[in-house]
C-alpha cells in the first residue's frame, strides 16, 4: 500500500483548490498546502489575524514580527495584499466570503461533524482560537489528517466522541490513505491510495463505505 506522506497529502489538497479561491489554511499540517499551490494560479490566502494575500516566509533575518500569520510565524504580503481588523476577518468566514478552509482534526463524522479543538481530557487547558468560526464559516471545509490514530483507530467515525468544533461543516477529508466526501448523505470514497481496496478501507474504518 502506497500511504501518502505529509507533503503528498498537502500536494493532493492543493490540486483541488481552484484559481481565484479565497482560502484559509489552518495551523499545523494544513499550512504545508501553500507549498504546493501552483504559482500561475491566483489563490488568495487569508490568515485570521488580519491579512489577505499572504506570501511565503521571509528570508532569515528579514522577519517583521508585526507581519505574522495565525500560527504567529513571520510571513510576507503579496503585492495586492491587504490588512484588516479582527471583526472584518471573521466576517469573511461567518459571512460566507471565504471559499475554502483546510483544518486538521481529531475526528470527523460521516455526516461532516468536526472535532479538532479539545481532547476533553480533564486537566487539559482548553484553547479554541478561530477553529469554530472557520469550521462553520467557510463555504467548504476540508480536513487534512491521518486516517488512523497511532493505535490504529479510525478518525473518520460514525459519530465523534471528542468535543465538537462544529456540526455538519466538513465536506471532504484528505487523508494518508484516501480522499472521502462526508455530509448529509454519509461518507463516500473519492479515491484510495494504490494498493488499498474498498474492502480494506471498510475494515480499517469499520464503516460501510461505498465508492
Amino acid at each position: 500500500m502506497n500511504r501518502l506522506n505529509r507533503d503528498q497529502m498537502a500536494e493532493r489538497v492543493a490540486r483541488d483548490i481552484p484559481e481565484g479561491a479565497y482560502v484559509n489554511l489552518g495551523i499545523g499540517l494544513p499550512t504545508k498546502v501553500a507549498n504546493y499551490l501552483p504559482q500561475e494560479r491566483d489563490i488568495f490566502l487569508q490568515s485570521e489575524n488580519g491579512l489577505l494575500g499572504m506570501g511565503p516566509a521571509p528570508a532569515a533575518g528579514e522577519e517583521d514580527w508585526e507581519l505574522i500569520n495565525a500560527g504567529k510565524q513571520a510571513v510576507t504580503l503579496l503585492s495586492g495584499g491587504a490588512f484588516f481588523h479582527h471583526a472584518d476577518s471573521f466576517a469573511m468566514m461567518r459571512g460566507g466570503h471565504l471559499d475554502i478552509c483546510v483544518l486538521g482534526a481529531f475526528q470527523v463524522s460521516v455526516h461532516g461533524d468536526l472535532a479538532n479543538w479539545h481532547t476533553g481530557e480533564s486537566g487539559a487547558i482548553p484553547a479554541v482560537g478561530g477553529a469554530m468560526d472557520l469550521a462553520i464559516g467557510a463555504r467548504q471545509t476540508f480536513v487534512m489528517m491521518d486516517l488512523l490514530t497511532k493505535s490504529g483507530e479510525s478518525k473518520l467515525v460514525e459519530a465523534c466522541t471528542y468535543p465538537l468544533t462544529g456540526l455538519a461543516c466538513v465536506s471532504r477529508v484528505y487523508s494518508d490513505l484516501g480522499v472521502f466526501s462526508v455530509g448529509a448523505e454519509g461518507a463516500r470514497v473519492i479515491e484510495l491510495v494504490d494498493g488499498l481496496s474498498l474492502e480494506d478501507i471498510r475494515k480499517l474504518t469499520g464503516l460501510p463505505l461505498e465508492g
Binding site: H85, F90, M93, R94, M132, G137
Partner: peptide, 25 residues
C-alpha cells in the same frame, strides 16, 4: 473561553451599542 470570531463580534457589538448578537459559531 470564547471562539475568536465571537470574541471579535462581542467586542464589536459593545462598540456598536447592540444588546446582543446571534452567531452561528
Amino acid at each position: 473561553l470564547v471562539p475568536q470570531g465571537n470574541l471579535a463580534a462581542r467586542i464589536q457589538a459593545a462598540g456598536a451599542g447592540l444588546g446582543a448578537i446571534f452567531t452561528p459559531t
